[in-house]
């Protein structure tokens, strides 16, 4: 294992993040605050509690998930797409490293960035609402797994994309709708029965539900099922990446 190379990719990617620290840091703080103003104060004042939790606090896990997923995807997909776009990929291909090491560097960095932003949002939320985390360990595990699996997913998108439009396509058309319809801002039990059934086909429901359970001990789906879903998604992404590695698809002609 070429740890030096993994570290080189990781730190190189992280330096991009630190270069734009203001943007990386301020943007999630502002958007989280806006969500609290709009959902928490304006709408939340008309919904006092959801399953015994104040609405302001109820949306915190969903908000964190929303940002963590989109950030992990965008950072990882851009991280590997950009070298393809500007041609510096030649260096990765001619270096004494294998695909797994490339994945570890890029995905590790993207997951770290997403984790950082998730933590910033959690801290910002604590300024607006009273938060108690009932299962801190489970929360950390859920957050880590989500960062990781969605960074893997983003990496696949970055390899697949052949232009900037394609890079945005999946996050915009699939991920964002799934997250918004995944119970980030409401409980699935608030929906009519038919929509509840449909919602259970949305994988994001399981992630948000599990994450919310870690905070408040309430969930739309059993916690075991949530863990299974995220583990399954991680494995699926790893499988696809292994296949890309085997075939050299869209990387090595």
């Amino acid at each position: 294992m070429n740890w030096q190379a993994i570290w080189a990719i990781y730190t190189f990617e992280m330096s991009r993040f630190f270069r734009t620290l203001l943007q990386s840091f301020v943007s999630p703080v502002i958007s989280t605050s806006l969500y609290f103003v709009v959902f928490g104060a304006a709408i939340g004042s008309r919904i006092d509690e959801v399953e015994g939790v104040s609405y302001g606090a109820f949306i915190v896990p969903g908000l964190i998930m929303l940002s963590v997923m989109t950030q992990a995807i965008s950072n990882a997909s851009f991280g590997i797409y950009f070298p393809k776009f500007i041609g510096t990929i030649y260096e990765l291909l001619s270096a004494p490293i294998n695909f797994l090491e490339i994945v570890m560097g890029y995905v590790g960095a993207a997951a770290t960035k997403a984790l950082f932003i998730g933590t910033v949002i959690l801290a910002t939320s604590a300024l607006f609402v009273d938060l108690t985390i009932q299962h801190p360990l489970a929360m950390v595990i859920f957050m880590l797994l989500t960062c990781l699996s969605f960074a893997l997913f983003g990496f696949i998108i970055g390899i697949w994309a052949q232009n900037f439009e394609q890079l945005q396509l999946i996050p915009l058309l699939i991920v964002t709708p799934l997250v918004f319809l995944g119970g980030s801002f409401y409980s699935i039990s608030m929906l009519p029965a038919a929509w509840q059934t449909i919602s259970f086909f949305n994988p994001v429901v399981y992630l948000v539900s599990g994450f919310r359970w870690a905070f408040f001990g309430i969930a739309d789906v059993p916690i075991g099922l949530s863990l299974l879903a995220i583990a399954g998604f991680t494995l699926l992404c790893l499988g696809i990446i292994w296949w890309i590695f085997k075939t050299g698809w869209r990387i090595r002609s």
């Binding site: 070429n2 030096q4 080189a8 270069r19 950009f82 500007i86 260096e91 004494p96 490293i97």
Partner: peptide
């Protein structure tokens, strides 16, 4: 083929690391 926003030393350091050299 170079990253336009990178600094010279940083990009050269990256290349060395990528090849597994301390």
């Amino acid at each position: 083929n170079l990253e336009p926003f990178e600094r010279v030393m940083n990009t050269v350091r990256f290349s060395r690391g990528l090849f597994g050299k301390p």
